[in-house]
Simulated assay, not measured.
Amino acid sequence: MNQHPKMDIYASTLYVVPTPIGNLQDITWRALSILQGVDLIAAEDTRHTGLLLKYFSINARLFALYDYNEQQKTSILLKKMKDGQSIALVCDAGTPLINDPGYHLVRCCHATGIRVVPLPGACAAITALSAAGLPSDRFCYEGFLPSKRKARLNSLQALAHEPRTLIFYESPHRLLESIKDMVIVWGPMRYVVLARELTKTWETIYGAPIEKIFAWIQGDDMRRRGEIVLIVEGYCEQGDKLPSQVLRTLSLLLNELPLKKAAVLAAQIYGLKKNTLYRYALNRQQKI
């Protein structure tokens, strides 16, 4: 593992280098060659990156570049590259700039004519999407929801009718609160896939309607630990696709029963998915 092919490194170039999100064997030969060959590695956490480099027996100079110093330190890195040095940009895990530092540096490189070379590699959002079993031809990456509840509810409301599959990152200590707010804004039947600790020993991928996901997480504290990605089914207006007799039955049931129970009963009567009927009834109720 210590021997990997060497590649040509361009002077005055910024390399954007993804690193593993868990399993160290997921790093590419090209990434190892770049990390070995550049003049400097700009890292989100030099201690964390140092452990990765040590594992692969790579000796390299490290430069700390994180959210709170990126604006200040970018000019230093730009000067080094203008003077001919090559630099690799890495984050703690996954692809730089995806909810990690680097945007300002990359933007300034383009503005000043410095070459930017991106490497393909690990990304938790795409890894989770590939295993979620939800539509992946069109998706919307939203990163972390706001930490303040009012802002979080507003964000969820703005996405209530987004038809694309939604991708969120979430922290363990806010997971239940975020899912609870999803139930409030989107209703309990929207399908969600929770992917945690991807590529690691305790990797878990579990999908269910939001309310069931909430109960499942509450059932075991381990299910809210680690790195978490939420893949959420996009909004789908099903009313035009439902037979008229189904809509009439659902309408009659809604006059007598709570929305969720009416949707479940109508689904049982006609052998349809309760999620479909619930979404239609919820949307109809909101328009009244």
Score class of each variant (00 low, 15 high):
Arg138Tyr: 15
Arg138Leu: 13
Phe139Arg: 08
Phe139Gln: 08
Phe139Gly: 01
Tyr141Glu: 11
Glu142Ile: 07
Glu142Gln: 13
Phe144Ile: 03
Leu145Cys: 01
Leu145Trp: 03
Leu145Ile: 05
Pro146Cys: 14
Ser147Val: 13
Arg149Gln: 14
Arg149Cys: 05
Ala151Glu: 12
Ala151Asn: 13
Ala151Trp: 14
Arg152Ile: 06
Arg152Trp: 04
Arg152Asp: 03
Leu153Pro: 02
Leu153Lys: 14
Leu153Ala: 11
Asn154Arg: 12
Ser155Tyr: 11
Ser155Val: 06
Leu156Ala: 07
Leu156Gln: 06
Leu156Ser: 04
Gln157Ile: 07
Ala158Met: 10
Leu159Ile: 10
Ala160Cys: 10
His161Pro: 00
Glu162Phe: 07
Glu162Gly: 02
Glu162Cys: 12
Pro163Gln: 13
Arg164Lys: 11
Thr165His: 04
Tyr169Trp: 04
Tyr169Met: 07
Glu170Pro: 02
Ser171Tyr: 08
Ser171Asn: 09
Ser171Glu: 12
Leu175Trp: 00
Leu175Arg: 01
Leu176Phe: 09
Glu177Met: 13
Glu177Trp: 11
Ser178Glu: 11
Ser178Cys: 15
Ser178Met: 09
Ile179Gly: 00
Ile179Tyr: 02
Lys180Asn: 15
Met182Val: 03
Ile184Asp: 14
Ile184Phe: 11
Val185Ser: 07
Val185Tyr: 05
Trp186Asp: 06
Gly187Gln: 04
Pro188Trp: 09
Met189Val: 06
Met189Trp: 11
Arg190Leu: 03
Val192Ser: 03
Val192Ala: 02
Val192Leu: 11
Val192Trp: 05
Ala195Ser: 13
Arg196Met: 08
Glu197Tyr: 07
Leu198Phe: 09
Lys200Tyr: 14
Thr201Cys: 10
Glu203Lys: 05
Tyr206Glu: 08
Gly207Phe: 06
Ile210Ala: 15
Ile210Glu: 03
Glu211Gly: 02
Glu211Pro: 00
Glu211Gln: 13
Lys212Ile: 07
Lys212Asn: 09
Ala215Ser: 14
Ala215Cys: 11
